[in-house]
Structures are given as C-alpha cells and as structure tokens.
C-alpha cells in the first residue's frame, strides 16, 4: 500500500505539525484549562494515524515502528507507576501523594505549578498516544496469510 494521492499527502504533511502541537498543548495545559493527558494523547495518536493513512504502511513504519511504539507505551506506564511510587519511597509520604507539591512551592496559574500533575499528564500523554497508535498499526498491518494456526 503506497498511501493516497499527492494532494492528501501534501495536506497531511502540512497539518501534521499543527495537530501534534495542539495535542502537546492540551497535554501541557491540562491542569490549567480543559484537557489533559488522555485527550491530548488521543489527539497525537490521531495525527500519527493520519500520517499512516496518507503515506501507507512502509513510510509510517520508518518513522515509528510497531515495536518502538509498543516500548514507548511501556515506558509511559512505568513512568506513571514510578511517579506514584515516588511518594512511597520517600519518608513520611504515602503512595501517590503529590510529592513535588509538598516539597516545593509554586506560583498558581503558572504552567509549572500543581506539583507532579503536569508530569503525570505528560507520562499519560506518551502512554496513550503510542499505545493507541500501536493498536491501530497492529490492526491495519494484520495479514491473514501469515497466520500459522488454522
């Protein structure tokens, strides 16, 4: 599969950056305005999927392979777990407490406020975008001729 026509490819190339930028914006400002890691992550995944649809499987596999997206998914999940356990390993703080909020003081309504909330948002954004992209790519690359059982 070589993808769609040149018009679609050009337009997809142009708007790819905007969609990813919008997704990152929603992730980063999740604690100040509506949005957050899940919404932003799904939007970023949509831009990856758009590129895959426009340019075909082979081009997409060059930029982010099946295995690579799956590993990134695991890194994201590990990061969330690590941020949760951070409180557990520090003295006198419980599991999943907002460690940074209690150790440092922040300016309210600033992008670097709310302690570890933006960090968890980033981890979730990474996890959701790569996870959904890997589901999609596995679904669309599935080739029944390679199936060995039955």
């Amino acid at each position: 599969m070589t993808g769609m026509t040149i018009i679609v490819k050009t337009v997809a190339e142009w708007i790819k950056g905007f969609i990813i930028f919008y997704g990152v914006y929603i992730v980063l400002l999740g604690h100040l305005s509506p949005g957050g890691g899940f919404a932003g992550g799904v939007i970023i995944a949509c831009s990856f999927i758009m590129m895959e649809l426009a340019f075909g499987k082979d081009q997409a596999a060059k930029e982010l392979s099946k295995h690579g997206s799956h590993l990134l998914d695991e890194y994201g999940a590990l990061a969330i777990l690590f941020l949760g356990l951070l409180g557990y390993f520090l003295p006198k703080l419980p599991f999943f407490s907002n460690v940074l909020m209690q150790k440092f003081s922040f300016i309210p309504f600033h992008i670097l406020s709310a302690g570890s909330i933006p960090l968890i948002n980033l981890a979730i954004g990474l996890k959701v975008s790569t996870g959904l992209y890997s589901v999609y790519i596995y679904l669309s690359h599935y080739d029944p001729r390679m199936q060995e059982d039955e």
Partner: peptide, 8 residues
C-alpha cells in the same frame, strides 16, 4: 483491621 490512605 487497618486502613491505608492513598495520597494521604
């Protein structure tokens, strides 16, 4: 019996 409060 005991409790654990997640996040304190």
């Amino acid at each position: 019996r005991g409790f654990y409060f997640v996040g304190g």
